[in-house]
């Protein structure tokens, strides 16, 4: 029996008002694969992450994560749209890091890291604190354990946010333009951390980014989005160097010119 893909989107439609953001999108991501989503803004790439995280609901189509259906559930033999509780259970295997970090300012760095493991996974506070210490060491912020997030730089906040997502031991990690809100000199530290995580774990990673250089050496596969569908799909060393689709060529030229 072949191994089931980690993430499967089947015919996913999503519209905001009159604007169709995704129209019948199909996507398969294998276990442990690192996929980078590129494309102009409004092309639907962030929407995919938000649908996977359950921050938005699909209009049509299905999403499976780890073999379990995120969008629908069985109730008395019938397939019905998933309710909050069902979605929350499936989402537990997914972590997300946001462009704006979104750390909880009313908690310390440690508080941010142990909140979900204690409240959601039922870990003891001692165990969660021990794991948090490991993660803070990984992201190089042990000395900030008891600080408030608002007292950290953007880069430090983002590294805490990455640690917070990892604290839930997700099988899938979603990275939504995690360096876009950072000052240029802070970007490298965050990208270095992500490379380290990518190399040292078997987490499946979906990453929306404008950092083409990072996409090239981080990803196993790059998806080029335009107008709500995938216009090109291939390994980074091919797609980013010799794009076959004119739209990809234009986009890459525009991005490289912008720097």
């Amino acid at each position: 029996m072949p191994v089931e893909p980690m993430v499967v989107l089947d015919g996913v439609h999503k519209r905001y008002g009159d604007t169709a953001v995704l129209s019948g999108l199909d996507l398969r991501v294998e276990r442990g694969e690192h996929v980078t989503l590129i494309g102009p803004s409004g092309s639907g790439k962030t929407t995919i992450l938000r649908l996977l995280m359950g921050l938005e609901a699909v209009d049509a189509g299905t999403i499976h994560v780890g073999g379990r259906c995120l969008t629908h559930m069985r109730r008395r033999g019938a397939v019905v749209p998933a309710d909050e509780k069902h979605a929350r259970a499936v989402r537990r295997t997914i972590g997300m890091v946001f462009q704006q970090f979104n750390l909880f300012p009313n908690m310390t760095v440690l508080g941010n890291l142990i909140e979900a493991p204690v409240r959601v996974l039922g870990m003891s506070e001692a165990e969660a604190t021990r794991r948090a210490a490991e993660l803070l060491e990984l992201v190089g912020l042990t000395d900030k354990t008891h600080e408030r997030p608002t007292r950290l730089s953007g880069g430090q906040q983002q590294r805490v946010a990455i640690a917070r997502a990892l604290a839930m031991r997700p099988e899938v990690l979603l990275l939504d333009e995690v360096t876009s809100a950072l000052d240029p000199e802070l970007v490298a530290g965050v990208l270095r951390l992500l490379r380290l995580i990518g190399e040292s774990s078997d987490i499946t990673i979906l990453c929306v980014t404008h950092e083409i250089g990072f996409a090239r050496d981080f990803a196993d596969r790059v998806l080029m989005f335009d107008g709500g569908s995938i216009v090109e799909d291939g390994p980074p060393e091919r797609l980013l160097v010799e794009p076959r689709v004119p739209r990809t060529k234009e986009f890459l030229a525009a991005v490289l010119e912008g720097r």
Binding site: G95, F104, E115
Partner: peptide, 24 residues
């Protein structure tokens, strides 16, 4: 973003209110 981060961590509804939103 605070609501979204809380949802992304699967925090139970009561904890979202009393641990994240109301303290702010």
């Amino acid at each position: 973003g605070q609501w979204e981060a809380a949802a992304a961590l699967s925090l139970p509804r009561s904890r979202v209110w009393f641990g994240v939103i109301l303290p702010q």
